Amino acid sequence: MKIAFSPCPNDTFVFHAWVHGLIPGAPELDVSYADIDITNNWASGSGSRDHDVLKISYAALPWVLDEYALIPCGGALGRGCGPLLLTRGDAAETSDPAFLSGRKVAVPSERSTAYLLFRLWAARHVPGGFGEIVVMPFDRIMPAVRDGQIDAGLVIHEARFTYPSYGLSMMTDLGSWWESDTGLPIPLGAIIARRSLDLAKITAWTRASVEYAWAHPDESRDYVMRHAQEMDPAVANAHIGLYVNAFTANLGEDGYAAVSALLNRAADEGLVPKIDPDKLR
């Protein structure tokens, strides 16, 4: 079975057991490790659509639900784990959202939850609108802001813990804004599988891999760190602790409500196609 997910610690932690043949009855995995922008494009058919299971952004679901189904476990959704909008220089000078008017903003993907949250927030808070959106790999965004190549950057994952070391300031925590505005958790990364497959089995194998990871946290450490792009082990552990949570084991009603709210709001703004709610489950 062909699977694609990111080399980030939460994904490698979740899938370690399945990748290493530790889930009884689960098929062998042929793994592609790729940034979320790449897997979003693979799933939507921009590249070779030959993966059976993928980790994508929830924001990319409207383009893939005809062929792929949402698996209700294994993904990243939670509270206190949303994307941050960063600027360089004195926070007092750049904390006003009006600073973004006409400015250049880097995002990790135009089909990412981070991007949708930014657009929904900016529609209310940035007078006259921002200027240009630049898509770049998430690990290049903070250096680009620091070096003045762009005016602001939308960051995800471990950047929550490391951005001060780049001399950057947080303009807003878009996850906190979303939670206070909706009362719902933040839907970040989704696991999807081809509808032609046995979805109940894929769900069971994925959930078993999550549960194995929690039960044997030390077993995945070498695998996680090998793919963690020279990340400090303490940061990797914090990353896992934040993004692998109860929603990873079971999306649940709050999870589905969060996904529906995000995609419906984004559709109302013309950012994504309207979804058929029956295809989410």
Rank of each mutant, 00 (worst) to 15 (best):
L22Y: 08
L263M: 09
N237P: 06
S176H: 12
P9W: 08
E269S: 14
F130P: 09
E93R: 14
A215T: 14
P277S: 10
I71L: 11
H20S: 05
S169F: 10
M170I: 08
A213Q: 00
I156C: 09
G25F: 15
I141M: 12
A17N: 05
G148A: 15
S6A: 12
G148Y: 05
W63H: 12
S6E: 08
L184K: 05
A267H: 07
W205P: 02
K55P: 07
D30K: 12
R221E: 13
R226A: 15
L263D: 01
N40C: 12
W178F: 11
P72T: 03
N40K: 04
F138M: 15
A123L: 14
G148T: 10
L174M: 01
G75V: 04
E93D: 13
L168K: 04
V244R: 00
I202M: 01
L242Q: 09
N40D: 10
V134M: 11
Y115V: 03
S32D: 11
S180T: 14
D278H: 12
L199R: 08
D218K: 15
V259S: 07
G183A: 12
R103H: 12
K2I: 09
T203N: 07
A193F: 00
D268Y: 13
G89Y: 09
I133C: 08
S48I: 15
E269F: 12
P164V: 11
P108M: 06
R103K: 15
A106N: 02
R124T: 11
T248F: 09
V244A: 02
E253S: 14
A76F: 05
L271Q: 14
G75R: 06
A267Q: 05
P127Y: 08
